[in-house]
Simulated assay, not measured.
Amino acid sequence: MVVAMIVACEVGFWVLIALGLLSRYALHRRRLSNVFLYSTPLLEVILLVVAVVDLRGGATAGSRHGIAALYIGTTVVFGHRAIRWVDQRVGYHFLGGPPPWRPPRRGPERIRYEVVEFGRTVAAMAIAGALLGVLILITGDADRTEALRGFFGVLGGFTLICLVICVYGVCEAFGKPPKDKPAPRRLRERDPAERTPVG
């Protein structure tokens, strides 16, 4: 049941985004669009309730419950950014809007971007870890929650990977800026009088 709800929440998340963008750009109903887009956090609440009910009903915790906590944590932190990412590209490619924002490539702005992104990752893992703790306390059975305690290592490993990516991005920020490619030389016909005679 938990696995099915994770899949359903992921599908529902993108369905709500699609309905929100359709309402905003095709129907020109911004309020209805906001209703769809701002309803996405309800999916995380539903998933959390399902996980709690499953464990309180006597189920043994497994990786599915840990994945549910991880999904909720990442969606809470990065969900609104995913909505903005899609919104910018739909507006640009189909409605002639401004180009989508792109992260900086060099300099202090790139360093700030990488540090902030890593901070968001830490926040997402902290939320997931807190949810794991809540599920463990609610279940109240060490034997049935052994898998949840082991999932803290997964969160730590994921955080470590993101730290390596952050360090790489910071190092890249100190690199030399890419050279501008020379504009292609336009071919033109030379005047016949300027041509070198043959022979």
Rank of each mutant, 00 (worst) to 15 (best):
His65Met: 02
Leu187Val: 09
Leu155Ser: 04
Val49Ser: 12
Ala142Val: 03
Asp143Ser: 14
Gly153Gln: 06
Arg24Asp: 11
Leu70Pro: 00
Leu21Ile: 13
Val52Pro: 00
Tyr25Thr: 04
Pro98Asp: 10
Glu146Thr: 12
Tyr38Ser: 03
Gly20Ile: 04
Arg144Ile: 05
Gly57Val: 01
Phe36Tyr: 15
Arg24Met: 13
Pro192Ser: 09
Val53Asp: 06
His80Asn: 08
Leu47Trp: 02
Ala51Pro: 03
Ser63Cys: 08
Phe36Asp: 07
Val3Leu: 13
Val3Thr: 13
Leu160Asp: 08
Gly57Ala: 01
Ala173Val: 01
Phe152Trp: 07
Pro182Arg: 06
Ile127Val: 10
Leu135Phe: 13
Glu146Val: 09
Leu155Gly: 04
Leu131Ser: 00
Arg195Asp: 15
Cys9Tyr: 03
Ile6Glu: 00
Thr121Cys: 07
Trp101Gln: 14
Arg195Ser: 09
Ile111Gln: 05
Pro41Met: 02
Ala8Trp: 01
Ala147His: 01
His80Lys: 06
Gly153Pro: 05
Ala126Gly: 09
Cys9Ile: 01
Leu32Lys: 07
Phe36Ala: 09
Val35Asp: 02
Leu95Gln: 14
Tyr25Ala: 01
Arg186Cys: 02
Arg188Gln: 06
Arg105Cys: 09
Ile83Tyr: 04
Arg29Ile: 10
Leu148Ile: 05
Leu19Arg: 11
Pro177Tyr: 09
His65Cys: 03
Thr196Phe: 15
Leu37Pro: 04
Val45Glu: 08
Gly150Lys: 04
Arg106Ala: 10
Ala68Pro: 00
Leu155Met: 09
Gly97Ile: 06
Trp101Ile: 10
Tyr92Ser: 07
Arg190Ser: 12
Ile136Thr: 10
Leu187Thr: 11
Ala26Val: 15
Arg186Met: 12
Met125Leu: 10
Arg112Phe: 14
Val122Pro: 02
Gly12Met: 09
Cys9Ala: 14
Ala173Gly: 05
Ala8Arg: 05
Trp14Ser: 08
Trp85His: 06
Leu42Val: 13
Tyr168Ala: 14
Leu70Phe: 03
Phe158Asp: 07
Ile83Glu: 05
Cys166Asn: 02
Ala124His: 05
Ser63Pro: 02
Glu117Asn: 13
Ser23Asp: 08
Glu10Trp: 14
Gly119Leu: 02
Cys166Lys: 00
Val35Ser: 01
Arg120Cys: 08
Cys171Gln: 12
Arg120Thr: 06
Lys179Glu: 15
Gly91Lys: 01
Val122Gln: 01
Glu109Gln: 13
Pro103Thr: 09
Arg64Leu: 03
Cys171Trp: 14
Leu43Cys: 09
Arg144Gly: 03
Gly199Val: 15
Gly133Leu: 01
Ala128Gln: 03
Met1Asn: 13
Val53Ile: 11
Ile138Arg: 04
Arg56Ile: 03
Val134Pro: 00
Ala8Lys: 02
Ile138Phe: 08
Arg102Tyr: 11
Tyr25Asn: 09
Asp87Leu: 06
Lys179Phe: 10
Val77Phe: 01
Lys176Ile: 08
Gly153Ile: 06
Phe36Val: 11
Thr121Ala: 07
Val170Ser: 02
Trp101Glu: 15
Phe13Val: 03
Thr75Asp: 00
Gly91Glu: 09
Glu44Gly: 00
Ala69Phe: 00
Gly20Ala: 08
Val115Gln: 13
Lys176Met: 12
Arg120Glu: 07
Val53Ser: 12
Leu19Glu: 10
Thr74Leu: 08
Ser63Arg: 10
Gly199Cys: 11
Val154His: 01
Pro182Lys: 08
Ala68Lys: 00
Phe78Trp: 05
Arg190Glu: 10
Trp101Met: 12
Ala147Pro: 04
